[in-house]
């Protein structure tokens, strides 16, 4: 896969080429794509920082609206799925497709559970009156606002940033789960990954670790502080 010179076919990639980076195209493409993803999340997180520091009043204290415990478990789950991703990658590097399939399946399950718990969390929050525009009239949270336990002036910003940032992260996790499932069904199950060729696992792994890393940042700034 990476040894271009050994398997040159004039019409199929990799073509004979001047030495570029010693990284095959799909992996390089993923690195380049992740650079743009960094900028995307930088825009969202930057917005959060600007709005929170410039907010017209105090920010809601952690733990009142959001359930930290269940999300902490979710964070742990996502980190574990990164570990299982590495295990899948290591397994196929050792030439053990059976073990690779096991770990890949575990990663998919971890990711899917993460999304499931996030959906549950959203439903729960909306039921309690936490929505993207702030706090719904007449809801449980509206009473807390009335009692002064939550700041009325900044709940709108809190809702806007929370749902946008975690929503787009959840969207990325969903995309990751879909691509891994696709690779599992079309490549891993038919046994197309071998000790010599496992580019798909490595590339989707890069994406998965990135999504995990973003979540650790989001969890810290949105839930904990």
């Amino acid at each position: 896969m990476t040894h271009a010179a050994a398997t040159v076919d004039q019409m199929r990639p990799p073509y004979p080429a001047e030495r570029g980076l010693d990284v095959y195209n799909t992996k390089l493409g993923m690195w380049v794509f992740l650079a743009s993803e960094v900028m995307f999340f930088a825009a969202l997180i930057g917005t959060y920082i600007i709005l929170r520091f410039g907010a017209p009043g105090e920010w809601a204290k952690p733990g009142i609206v959001l359930n930290i415990k269940i999300t902490a478990f979710n964070t742990f789950l996502l980190i574990c799925s990164s570990v299982s991703m590495v295990k899948a990658y290591a397994a196929i590097q050792d030439g053990d497709p059976k073990k690779m399939r096991f770990w890949l399946l575990l990663t998919i399950l971890g990711g899917a559970t993460f999304v499931g718990i996030q959906v549950y969390e959203y439903i729960h929050l909306i039921e309690h009156g936490f929505v993207p525009s702030g706090v719904r009239e007449g809801s449980e949270l509206a009473e807390l606002v009335a009692k002064g336990q939550l700041p009325a002036a900044t709940m709108g910003l809190y809702g806007s940033t929370f749902f946008t940032m975690t929503g787009f992260h959840g969207f990325h996790v969903t995309c990751g789960v879909i691509s891994m499932t696709y690779l599992y069904l079309t490549k891993a199950l038919p046994g197309k990954y071998t000790k010599q060729s496992y580019g798909g696992i490595e590339t989707v792994g890069l994406y998965w670790h990135f999504v995990d890393l973003v979540w650790i940042i989001l969890f810290t700034i949105v839930y904990l502080i």
Partner: peptide, 13 residues
């Protein structure tokens, strides 16, 4: 969906 990122009336900038 009624977020307030850019609406100063609701604290946005």
């Amino acid at each position: 969906i009624g977020t307030h990122f850019f609406d100063p009336a609701a604290g946005g900038q």
